[in-house]
Computed example of a mutant assay.
Amino acid sequence: MRNLLEFLARYNHWLLFVVLEVIGIVLLFQYNSYQGSVWFSSANAVAGKVLSWDAKVESFFSMSKANQELTQRNLYLEQQVKLLSGQLGEATKDTGWVHRNQLALLKSFKMVPAKVVSNSVSRFDNLITINKGSADGVRKDMGVACGQGVVGIVYMVSSHYSVVIPVLNTSSNISCRIRGRGYFGYLHWSGGDPRVAYVEEVPR
């Protein structure tokens, strides 16, 4: 015990320096998304695994609610597809038209299913980490979408993980079109309410 105290007394300045360095690094990566994403890129194997384990634990506890929401969503979509298919079949006298065009549309896109392993929604510079990377065909600037619409754009890619800039990021500007008018603009979220974003640079 005495030797330990003597060691701490002799090297207390170095120990304090190391502790402060560790605290500084943790704060840097935790509260700065850009530095955090750079660290993610350089240490993706470790960071990705840790985030995946954390996401699996959270997913396990929220699985019941998610399954219920998916069931309701699927039921609604099935009803809509059935209704629209019937109306289109009556109008065109061709009941297979919808199915053929759905297949043709899907073939024009390369879809890579992925899971979110890390996500934030309470910051101005939110980022999403998904469990797919260049080895799975994901490339920078690819679009990311879910069943409810646009999610964001791929920002950084490693072998097995990718960082996505979502719509809920003040740096995000996603090209979009106003339905029924044909005007194009950029969808931008300026912070605050995550349910509200604005279409900017629309011609007047």
Rank of each mutant, 00 (worst) to 15 (best):
M1T: 08
N3V: 10
N3Q: 11
F7M: 08
A9G: 05
Y11F: 12
N12Q: 07
N12L: 00
N12V: 00
H13S: 05
L15G: 00
L15I: 00
V19C: 14
L20F: 02
I25K: 03
Q30N: 05
Q30C: 03
W39A: 11
S41M: 07
S42H: 03
A43F: 00
N44V: 06
V46S: 09
L51C: 04
S52F: 10
E58Q: 08
S59W: 03
F60G: 02
F60N: 10
F61N: 02
S62G: 06
K65Q: 13
K65F: 10
K65P: 02
K65T: 10
N67R: 15
Q68E: 15
Q72N: 15
L77V: 12
L77N: 13
Q80D: 04
V81C: 04
K82V: 09
G86E: 01
Q87G: 05
G89V: 01
E90M: 09
E90P: 00
T92S: 12
G96K: 12
W97R: 02
V98T: 10
N101Q: 10
S108H: 07
F109Y: 09
K110E: 12
K110P: 02
M111T: 05
V116D: 03
V117F: 01
S118L: 08
S118M: 06
N119R: 14
S120R: 10
F124W: 12
F124R: 14
D125V: 00
L127M: 08
T129H: 05
N131W: 04
K132E: 07
A135T: 10
G137E: 02
R139F: 04
D141E: 04
V144L: 12
C146T: 13
C146S: 14
V150H: 15
V151W: 09
I153K: 06
I153A: 02
S159E: 13
H160A: 14
H160R: 12
Y161D: 09
V163F: 01
V164S: 14
V164K: 13
I165F: 12
I165T: 11
P166F: 13
P166H: 09
L168N: 14
L168F: 05
S171E: 12
N173D: 09
N173E: 13
I174L: 10
C176F: 01
R179C: 15
R179K: 15
G185C: 11
Y186M: 10
G191A: 05
G192I: 08
G192R: 01
P194V: 08
V196D: 07
A197G: 04
V199A: 01
E200R: 15
V202L: 09
